[in-house]
Design a protein around this nucleic acid. Structure first.
Length: 275
DNA sequence: CGGACAACCTGGCGGC
DNA sequence: TGCCGCCAGGTTGTCC
């Protein structure tokens, strides 16, 4: 659920309350959330380091410290936010990792489904090196997109979800980008015309830009670090719109399974294609 | 290369 | 009200 726009919104929201603070200690109650190194080394290494910058790569949050980078992946239900240390945790029973900061603050990682992970590393390449290009960066040009599509025969939706192909797109924005481009989700990459490719390149960027502008989609778990909801979900054309009329043509939006994922599309605007 | 599927987990919801 | 079973979707790994 948290995809590029949601993670970007979290990153932006964390900078003000977190940069400049020093991590004093670490607490956790679910060891599997700590991916690497092991919890003992993790806490020993992170204590005393100060937050210098916060960035994003794909769906990963990169909290740059003095000598290491604290990396967080929210997966489906993760939340990352700063709270006052003395503020009771009763309102959020899913906090599994906590970092005490100076000045009475606390960085909390909450995750009801426990899929999320935290990493500490001085070599981000090991974890992030395999990722594809950032779709909102200027270097993600139409030419780059074309080259990456070359020789691929995969179903286009599956390709968009592949983080090594393009980084940061998830189930929601994949459906939205395909709708905007008028491309059926099961179209094979090699079936795309030059015009399809150009359009899809543009709608991937448009869809993600719009998501960032609306501060992410609060479908059920996602919240901005200040606890408020994003508004992106109010602007979806197809995601979660099954059984409702298409805003473009009035045809009822359909929901099928593609690449083992719930997939929403307009049967009229996104016609199926045979080989 | 591609596709299917299980695993990791738990809350929310529809059905009864 | 309560229980059951399914669905949600990011990523990795395994198997064909």
């Amino acid at each position: 659920m948290p995809e590029l726009p949601e993670v970007e919104t979290v990153v932006r929201g964390l900078r003000e309350p977190l940069i400049g603070h020093t991590i004093q200690s670490m607490w956790y109650d679910w060891e599997k959330t700590i991916h690497s190194p092991d919890a003992i080394e993790f806490s020993a290494r992170i204590e005393g380091q100060t937050v210098q910058a916060i960035n994003r790569r794909a769906k990963y949050i990169l909290i740059e410290l003095d000598t290491d980078v604290l990396i967080v992946h929210l997966k489906m239900t993760g939340r990352l936010y700063v709270a006052d240390k003395d503020e009771e945790q009763v309102a959020d029973k899913w906090v599994h990792v906590r970092f005490d900061l100076d000045k009475g603050k606390q960085l909390r990682f909450s995750d009801s489904r426990k899929f999320g992970k935290v990493y500490l590393t001085d070599n981000t390449d090991t974890l992030l090196g395999h990722l594809g290009p950032e779709p909102l960066e200027d270097d993600f040009t139409l030419e780059v997109f074309r080259e990456r599509l070359e020789g691929r025969s995969k179903i286009i939706k599956a390709l968009l979800l592949d983080q090594t192909f393009v980084a940061g797109i998830g189930n929601i924005y994949a459906d939205e980008a395909l709708f905007r481009a008028g491309i059926h989700p099961t179209v094979k990459a090699h079936q795309l015309s030059d015009q399809d490719t150009e359009l899809l390149h543009q709608t991937i960027r448009d869809t993600l830009f719009a998501g960032v502008e609306h501060e992410g989609a609060s479908i059920n778990w996602y919240r901005k670090p200040d606890g408020t909801e994003g508004n992106s979900q109010k602007h979806f054309f197809v995601y979660g719109q099954d059984d409702n009329p298409c805003q473009n043509c009035g045809t009822i939006i359909d929901k099928i399974r593609v690449a083992q994922r719930g997939t929403h599309f307009c049967p009229n605007c996104q016609p199926e294609r045979l080989d």
